[in-house]
């Protein structure tokens, strides 16, 4: 018999008779005579595949209705590889998403500057486009020393990324190759 996650809940049956308190160690409210409520109750559930190693474990992401942010990520019991389990990194996935150290704005560092400056996406992408075009224009090679057609620039290199989705990878390499890059490399080489 295949016991799925939801099946497990049904089989074991939530006991409603327990005497417990919410927020153990923190809450001063009196002992309540009903079962505790899960923090994930009413949260949106989506499935994901862990972004760390190559095992490809499934996880369930609980996104809170109020703030629209992750409130819990745990292993997906219906995933046939990990069956609900996760290692230390996988168990910390929610802290990857909800992390005050994350970059949330494009930033720019000018030549010889000591600091980052917050910039807009529009500005950043427009400026990057200018840089790419300028470098490409200055260095584009139609023919190599032997006179063979090469249509490339070797003055721009791009590395990345095993952290991209397949679909992102495909358009990424297509774009880079269309620009004439041959220096295209990523994690598989190191």
């Amino acid at each position: 018999m295949n016991v799925t996650r939801r099946g497990f809940i049904k089989i074991s049956g939530a006991t409603a008779a327990g005497i417990a308190v919410s927020g153990m160690g923190f809450d001063l409210s009196p002992v309540k005579a009903h079962a505790l409520t899960l923090k994930t109750k009413d949260a949106k559930e989506t499935t994901t595949i862990c972004c760390y190693c190559g095992v490809g474990c499934g996880a369930i992401v609980h996104t809170g209705k109020d703030k629209g942010r992750v409130i819990n990520i745990e292993g997906d019991p219906d995933h046939v590889i990990n069956r609900g389990s996760l290692c230390s990194k996988g168990s910390a996935l929610s802290q990857l998403a909800e992390n005050k150290n994350r970059l949330t704005e494009p930033m720019y560092r000018a030549p010889n500057s000591k600091e980052w400056k917050k910039v807009s996406w529009e500005w950043a992408l427009a400026e990057i486009t200018k840089r790419v075009k300028a470098t490409r224009e200055a260095t584009f090679t139609l023919k190599n020393e032997k006179g063979q057609t090469v249509n490339r620039t070797t003055a721009i290199a791009s590395v990345g990324s095993a952290a991209l989705d397949n679909e992102e990878c495909w358009i990424y390499q297509a774009l880079m190759r269309s620009l004439g890059l041959v220096y295209i490399e990523h994690q598989a080489r190191i």
Partner: peptide
Amino acid sequence: QNGLLPACVKTCP
């Protein structure tokens, strides 16, 4: 109480 395993058990591979 809600029919789930304790977090540490659930996650153990």
